[in-house]
């Protein structure tokens, strides 16, 4: 597997040399292989959105190095083309929609790539399908009249159409209802099935991330407090206890049992298995009486 993202000793300072100077990221080291899904978790002011902008060259490191698809982002001439390789879906991306019909909106980025109109068309249709919309019935609609969830999917299609090697999504679930969240999960999982596409999901919701990610990075106030594969995280009691109530339900059970020193019979991978484990414990206690 090849490294597609390599972040070395990265620090970033906002507005250096002014009264507003602020250290946003401190000495971050992350490397990611092609085809992996990284979940980037952090609260307000953790620096997670800053990291996203560093990845596609909107900003560049104060010190350290960010290498993406072999491109050093501190080289200005290369940085300007990084958007073709790293697709960035911002928080509430539906707010950036500006064209008068769905087709043009999705095609906007493609046209900036100077592709032929037939190539643009086939990519627009393909991208709309990938976000679960029916292209023929959508392309002529005005985005203004569509619901927020559909608008968000259109905005995502606009990025997917660019066929980026790396897709970065900032809080893709925010504000969606359970149905909308499920549709979003489907879009992300479909991408994950393709083993060559790399994805980064940024969220303040550990539940969302744990359900999807191969690797987890946890940022706190600009410091990377954990980076590794998901099973590794489950051994870090100190971190888990901090986010105890933000774990997925089945892990809350596993963690609570663990904290009581109760050995679980088998690995708990979902809520149903967690329930079975509880039933086993209750029945074993009855055995004592």
């Amino acid at each position: 597997m090849s490294k597609i993202i390599d972040i070395k000793d990265l620090s970033y300072i906002y507005l250096p040399g002014t009264a507003y100077q602020q250290q946003a990221l401190n000495n971050i080291n992350i490397s990611l292989n092609q085809g992996e899904l990284l979940g980037l978790f952090g609260g307000n002011g953790s620096g997670k959105s800053t990291l996203a902008k560093l990845l596609n060259g909107l900003i560049y490191p104060t010190t350290g190095r960010v290498t993406v698809c072999g491109i050093d982002t501190s080289i200005k001439a290369l940085r300007n083309d990084l958007w073709k390789k790293v697709g960035l879906v911002f928080q509430y991306p539906e707010q950036q929609i500006f064209e008068s019909n769905v087709y043009d909106e999705v095609a906007y980025g493609l046209r900036n790539l100077d592709l032929s109109e037939s190539e643009v068309k086939s990519r627009v249709y393909e991208a709309l399908k990938r976000v679960g919309l029916i292209p023929n019935s959508m392309v002529n609609l005005s985005p203004v009249k569509l619901s927020g969830g559909v608008r968000r999917r259109i905005a995502i299609a606009g990025i997917l159409a660019l066929e980026p090697e790396i897709l970065v999504m900032d809080e893709p679930m925010a504000g969606l209802d359970p149905l909308g969240q499920k549709l979003m999960l489907d879009i992300i999982k479909a991408r994950q099935e393709n083993k060559t596409q790399t994805t980064i999901i940024i969220s303040h919701n550990l539940k969302d991330i744990l359900a999807l990610a191969d690797k987890i990075a946890i940022l706190e106030k600009g410091y990377l407090v954990f980076y590794g594969e998901v099973p590794e995280l489950l051994n870090h009691i100190d971190i888990l206890s901090k986010f105890r109530l933000e774990l997925p339900d089945y892990l809350q059970v596993a963690y609570a049992l663990n904290a009581r020193g109760i050995k679980t019979n088998s690995e708990i991978n979902n809520l149903h298995e967690a329930g079975l484990e509880l039933i086993r414990i209750i029945s074993s206690q009855k055995g004592k009486f």
Partner: peptide, 16 residues
């Protein structure tokens, strides 16, 4: 703030 973030979003779609 919003205009800056929309600007970033459009730059990420190749707006110059």
């Amino acid at each position: 703030e919003e205009s800056l973030s929309i600007k970033d979003a459009q730059r990420s779609r190749g707006a110059r």
